[in-house]
């Protein structure tokens, strides 16, 4: 019998890596149980092979998504939602920049009328991105602001409205209802809207990311995730549990605070980086 490199210490190391990447103890155990079975069945003995198998299993959880539901209708609407401070407003600006470069005529709706200076923040970003921004008075009804923005977009020949919404915890019934109302306004004003509903998740978030996704999805039908702050040392492993349970794809990642710091999600690179420590060397 040849010696196997697959020792209890190796299993523990893999578990530690998964959990420290915020994959979560349940998903981690499920993955490792499946791998134990495969190791036995397939007679795997090399650590390197086991690592490769784990990466492949993780990669398989992130199914390749269908193309975006954009680029067909004369006026399209994207709602950007999420908990407080996850990076929505900054991401809306980055998206505006990106879509504008692709030749779209973008208009921003500042539908966060609650947080202090949220409108001013988006206005500054709109200037930098070179797109117009429609907002309302502090405390104004966010649905009404979006409605105005959609009317303005139609009248002035814009073809893509990106709506920034106020941060809210998914546990707050009234605020989630308010968001549903914003969605209904879009649906009524523009056929097929909202075309996409993107949930902005902070990559530093741990196990709370799943209930967030669950509740936002239930309330407003999330179509994709944007994972921000990946330029830090957090790995964003919580998206695996979300992909497994809700089937939501990651569409973009945020990697900084500038307009250019938004990248299309690259699942292979994401899985690879999950196992690298902060200094870039393999764990």
């Amino acid at each position: 019998l040849g010696a196997t490199e697959i020792t209890p210490a190796l299993w523990e190391e893999l578990e530690a890596a998964l959990i420290q990447a915020d994959v979560g103890v349940r998903v981690a155990q499920e993955l490792l149980d499946r791998l134990r079975e495969r190791v036995r069945r397939e007679g795997v003995t090399r650590a390197e092979d086991l690592r490769a198998m784990l990466k492949a299993e993780l990669r398989a959880l992130l199914k390749d998504p269908p193309p975006l539901n954009l680029g067909r209708d004369p006026l399209e609407v994207v709602l950007v939602v999420g908990v407080n401070g996850s990076g929505k407003t900054t991401t809306v600006a980055k998206l505006a920049h990106r879509f504008r470069q692709q030749g779209r005529r973008v208009l921003l709706a500042a539908a966060d009328t609650f947080r202090a200076a949220a409108g001013e923040q988006l206005e500054i970003w709109a200037d930098r991105a070179g797109v117009p921004c429609i907002g309302g008075q502090p405390g104004a009804d966010p649905g009404a602001v979006l409605f105005d923005a959609l009317q303005a977009a139609r009248a002035r020949g814009y073809d893509l409205v990106l709506a920034d919404t106020a941060g809210r915890l998914h546990t707050k019934y009234n605020l989630m209802q308010e968001l549903q109302k914003v969605r209904r306004v879009a649906a009524k004003a523009v056929p097929g809207a909202p075309h996409e509903v993107w949930l902005v998740l902070d990559a530093t978030t741990g196990q709370n990311a799943l209930p967030q996704a669950r509740e936002f999805h239930q309330a407003v039908g999330v179509t994709g995730l944007i994972l921000t702050k990946l330029d830090g040392t957090a790995k964003g492993g919580a998206v695996f549990a979300i992909a497994r349970e809700l089937g939501l794809p990651v569409r973009f990642v945020g990697v900084g605070e500038g307009l250019e710091d938004l990248l299309p999600f690259d699942a292979d690179a994401f899985v690879e980086e999950l196992f690298e420590d902060a200094t870039g060397s393999p764990a």
Binding site: G85, D202, T204, T205, G206, N208, G232, T233, A234, K235
Partner: peptide
């Protein structure tokens, strides 16, 4: 610190 922070809290 955000109460929702995951494993990265230690490092930061």
């Amino acid at each position: 610190v955000d109460a929702m922070t995951g494993q990265d809290a230690v490092r930061a």
